[in-house]
Every structure is written in structure tokens, then in C-alpha cells.
Design a protein around this nucleic acid. Structure first.
Lengths: 140, 140
DNA sequence: TTTTAAGATTTACAGTTGTAAACTATGAAC
DNA sequence: GTTCATAGTTTACAACTGTAAATCTTAAAA
């Protein structure tokens, strides 16, 4: 059973537009997503409605067209998603997985420096080996 | 429309067990997952069957109990998942997202060193800033 | 060889997601 | 004040998921 609302893949694309714009009308979102995808306007409207039902978007409804605004910050949502994924990976393999995304992502100088700092810090107390816990009983 | 088969969350848990053991009978998987989750044996059997239909597992069927083996390597599957997630994040925010998982994950000395090496290498050609492309039209 | 328990397969069913058409309401133009 | 076009809401429907019971098979015990 689902405890917390989550965004589907398609819904996430809608949110990206609105996060980037700060707020947007459905028309704006539709115009942009029709460029990026093969979705029909009706599809995009459905996604907006679902995001409202899930409370990830709220609409300023003074008058039409409504203006849609995010109710969750992009960084927070990203962190939730990434955490959720990594929580289900074998501990032993996270390091390698992270190394692979670093390799394949464009990252700014500033972010690189920050990561190196984080890693140096971590190195002070990091274990020689990380144990696999894939067969361990969970506490839940 | 789905071009490629993907594993659902629940199916992933089954794969983790079998990846870790190398191969396993349904009984082994059931015993372990009954510890880790609230799933009933029947549920776990369903997941195994679906994984076979999706060709992520094959069964050695000489005789019962069958022995199930992965048809995809764990590292490959992890990379696909992680890539799939990061492909849908705003470019500008990937650096920060990666930094956050580094902070919150247990990582071995060896993996830390490797990442630092990767980052130093990247720093040589990394841009000062990464541009957001969330509103850009895709090539597809 | 019959019985039976363990294991495999089918069937079930509601909720989510991708995908979109049909329908309704409203601001703006006439 | 009507009439539209635009924007918002309902309805639709199949595939995928989480969840599991019911049923069929077969190796092993009796």
C-alpha cells in the first residue's frame, strides 16, 4: 500500500517545466512538452490534473487561465527520488554506481570541488570494505 | 509504449536475493523475503514468474525445485536504473544530487579513491557552469 | 503404486500509469 | 447578450504493479 504520494515518470516531466519556470499556465507546459515529447495536449492536461490531486501542484484560480505552482521544491523532490533508488541497491555496489554517474554526467567545477571535499571528509572514517546486506532481515 | 522490459520495485527485491546468492530456488527466495517484508509466499512466487516472463530470470528445469538464475548482471541493471533516473533530472542539479548520495551512503576507501580520481580527471575539462536544459526540445 | 506435500502456474482484483477523447465552463470578441 | 475559442474536468481504457488465493504438477514418501 502506498503511504506517500509519488510522481510518475510522465508527471515528473511536467514538474520539471514548472520548476524551471517557477510557475506556468497549462498552455506554457503544453507548448514545451509538445516539443519534447509526442504527447497530445489532452495527455498533458491529465498529468497536470493528477499532479494537483496528488498535491504536487496548486493552481491559482482567480481567473483563467489558471497559474500552476509547485508545492514541493525541486531539490527536495530530487533528493527523495535519488534516495529512494539508492535505498534499494546493494550497499556494496553503491560506490561503483555513483562513480558511473559521475563519469557520465556533466558537472560544474564548483560541484566537483564540493564532491571532492565531501569525499575527503568521508575518507577519514570510511570502512575498508562495505558489507552486502541484501540477505539481511529488515527492521520493518 | 514500453520498448524495453523493466523491473518493478517488488521484482527488484527478488532479483537482489538471487544476484547475491548467484542462483536460488523459490524456497530460498521466499524464506529470505518473508524475513525482510510482509509478503506472502504466493506474492513472491508471482514475482518470480513475472521476472521469468520478462526474461530477467531463467529457470533450470531439469527437476523440481527449479533453480532460478539471473540473465542480467547486477551491475548492468543498477547502471540502467541509475542512468534512467539521472537522465530525467535537471542537468544543473545533478551535481548536488550526487553530492547528497555520497554524503548519505556508506562507501569503501577504495571506492572513495576511485571517485576522487574520476573527479580530478573530470575537473580538467569540466565547465564553470552547467546549463539547465529542462525547456529544450528533445531530439526524439 | 497411491498419496501427499512442495513447488509451479493460473486466475483475480484493485490501484497506478500512459495515453487521450469527450465534455463543460468561462473570458473575450462581436 | 451571444458566440466561440481556450482552458479545465470527466470519462476511458489497456498495461503494469502489488498483492494473493486457488489450482495443477511432480518428486518423494508410504
Amino acid at each position: 500500500m502506498k503511504e506517500v504520494e509519488t510522481m510518475s515518470r510522465a508527471e515528473w516531466q511536467v514538474m520539471r517545466i514548472i520548476w524551471t519556470l517557477g510557475q506556468a499556465t497549462s498552455k506554457q507546459v503544453i507548448e514545451i512538452l509538445e516539443q519534447k515529447t509526442d504527447w497530445k495536449a489532452a495527455t498533458i492536461k491529465t498529468l497536470i490534473i493528477r499532479l494537483q490531486k496528488k498535491h504536487f501542484l496548486k493552481a491559482v484560480e482567480e481567473k483563467r487561465p489558471y497559474i500552476y505552482q509547485p508545492t514541493i521544491e525541486e531539490d527536495v523532490a530530487i533528493k527523495e527520488n535519488v534516495t529512494d533508488l539508492f535505498d534499494n541497491l546493494c550497499c556494496m555496489r553503491k560506490g561503483n554506481a555513483i562513480n558511473e554517474i559521475i563519469e557520465s554526467s556533466a558537472i560544474s567545477q564548483a560541484d566537483i570541488s564540493k564532491m571532492i571535499a565531501t569525499l575527503n571528509q568521508k575518507a577519514k572514517t570510511a570502512p575498508e570494505e562495505v558489507e552486502c546486506d541484501c540477505l539481511e532481515a529488515d527492521l520493518k
